Simulated assay, not measured.
Amino acid sequence: MLRVLGLRLLLSVPLLLFVTALTFFLVSLTPGDPAVVILGQNRAPEEYQRLREQLGLLDPVPVQYARWLGTLTQGSLGVSIFNNEPVVAKLGARLGVTLSLVTLTALVASVVGVALGIASALRQGALARAVDVLSLLGIVLPNFWVALVLVAVFAVRLRWFPAIGYVQPSTSTGGWLRSLALPVVVLAGPAIGLIAQQTRNAMLDVLDRPFIRTLRAGGVPPASLIYRHALRNAGIPIITVVGLVFIALLGGTIIAENVFALPGLGGLAVEATSRHDLPVIQGIVLYFTVIVVVVNLVIDVIYAWLNPRVRVT
């Protein structure tokens, strides 16, 4: 297993190179010039050219990317074009916010989604249809609209939760949970329906297998039959969709962090893109890609734990 995980880590290096190179070239094609943003419209041509030369923007794009790779091999991601702040420090101050939001959302969506999926598989009928409706609503309703409705009801009118802002868990655990409550609900809604549907389908497939009927005829208690045997055998497709949800939530943080003014990587990505701050954009893409790689490795480990006969190749 360790050899396989080591091979997966080795294969992730070309993925990181491909994603960062693609991002670098795509950003270079987008409209915008950081020199113009820094100097403004009323700029002297000589000053403009001098600043572009200082920022290395006069070099061909492949040369700029090679220079960025050089800084990466030295353990650095460069500095922000606008304030010369090290990108590693800039992202490190915001990484915890994004990871807190994504992890808490994935946890809530997994627990609620799996519970609803199991219940709808056992009872079906109206509960199964409710899961389908919940999944459809999660897909149809825009996240930003749901966020605005939740803010208007629970933050402005009822004042149960703050409308904007983030509280560090080291400052107040309760305040941290309250500051993330509404963003988590916004992001977890679509994920709950998706996980519930996958759990129901996987459970129905396992519950219809001969070994489950044999165990039931042998007098195995219902709770043990469902949670120890059926759920474990249905775990691989459920874990797969949970992993996909976790990865998809990284993109969802962009909307949530901007609506709720959370100081995370998603909001920083929007700011850096609007200002054409390429080192910051590259750093965020690298961080997100590494998170995706780690999530996939964790899923492989869980696969092997759920079913030792599964050989990860």
Rank of each mutant, 00 (worst) to 15 (best):
H229C: 11
I212E: 01
W160S: 04
G78V: 08
L249H: 11
P210N: 04
I195V: 08
G78W: 09
G75Y: 00
V140N: 01
R43G: 00
S224T: 14
M203C: 03
Y303K: 15
V97I: 10
V292Q: 11
R232Y: 09
L306S: 08
Q124D: 15
L39M: 04
V206E: 12
G56S: 09
F211C: 10
S80K: 03
L72H: 03
V112Y: 09
N83I: 01
E271D: 13
L225D: 06
P34S: 10
V270F: 06
I236Y: 04
L15D: 03
R309G: 10
R213P: 01
N143I: 13
G125L: 12
L11N: 12
S120D: 08
A261M: 11
R216G: 10
L286E: 07
V156M: 14
V167F: 01
A256V: 06
V131N: 11
N201G: 15
Y65I: 05
A89R: 12
P60V: 08
S12A: 15
I291M: 15
N84P: 04
L286I: 12
Q74W: 12
D33K: 03
L116P: 01
L58V: 12
K90G: 00
L57V: 03
L182P: 02
G138K: 00
V37T: 15
R43V: 14
G252Q: 03
R8H: 10
A126N: 11
H229D: 02
W160Y: 07
T98P: 04
L101Y: 00
I236C: 06
L231H: 01
N201Q: 15
L107A: 15
G218K: 15
S100F: 00
V140A: 14
P169E: 00
I255H: 00
V312N: 09
L265A: 02
P142V: 02
V167Y: 01
L104I: 13
V290A: 13
V293H: 05
A191E: 12
V312C: 04
P183Q: 05
H229I: 05
P210S: 10
A89S: 14
L231S: 08
V242S: 08
L225R: 08
F24S: 12
D205H: 14
Y65C: 02
I192S: 01
H229W: 06
R232G: 00
S76W: 00
V298T: 11
A119Q: 06
V270M: 03
I164T: 15
V186W: 00
V146G: 08
I195A: 07
S28C: 14
A217G: 08
